[in-house]
């Protein structure tokens, strides 16, 4: 008997944009209390852009572009933070509590403050969570 490994069919660009939008909605619910303005502030986008994407059911990022724009890169960093928190905290409320609490590992700033400060701050939080998940035996 020959076993042929089946590869999952790749998503179309439209499906990719829809998947990103679904993820954005999850992040909006867990970290931003359904508040488009708060999410927009953390991504450095206007509130109307977020609202427009959600109404359309797909994001406006160019997902097939190799050189991704900064906005999309920052969204991916925020998505990675959300993913790590999903992995670390069983209770969804704890993910938001951690995100907004002052943290001694960030010299008293909150992870939210760092993400709002720009891409470098967001990457610092992402790396910190990657590090936390990789530590320990």
């Amino acid at each position: 008997m020959t076993i042929v490994a089946q590869q999952r069919q790749e998503l179309s660009d439209k499906e990719k944009k829809q998947a990103i939008c679904k993820l954005m909605l999850q992040i909006l619910e867990i970290l931003f209390d359904q508040n488009n303005a708060k999410l927009a502030l953390h991504l450095g986008l206007s509130r109307s852009v977020i609202g427009k994407w959600i109404r359309a059911g797909e994001c406006g990022y160019n997902v097939s572009q190799k050189e991704r724009d900064n906005d999309y890169q920052k969204f991916l960093v925020l998505a990675s933070i959300h993913r790590s928190l999903y992995s670390i905290f069983t209770n969804p409320k704890d993910r938001a509590i951690w995100f907004y609490a002052s943290n001694s590992d960030f010299h008293g700033a909150s992870p939210s403050d760092l993400v709002k400060s720009g891409i470098l701050g967001a990457v610092t939080v992402k790396q910190y969570l990657d590090y936390q998940r990789g530590l320990g035996v």
């Binding site: 704890d94 951690w98 609490a101 002052s102 943290n103 001694s104």
Partner: peptide, 9 residues
């Protein structure tokens, strides 16, 4: 403990 909050569940 690095998070300065007592609000965790």
């Amino acid at each position: 403990l690095a998070s300065h909050t007592s609000a965790f569940s």
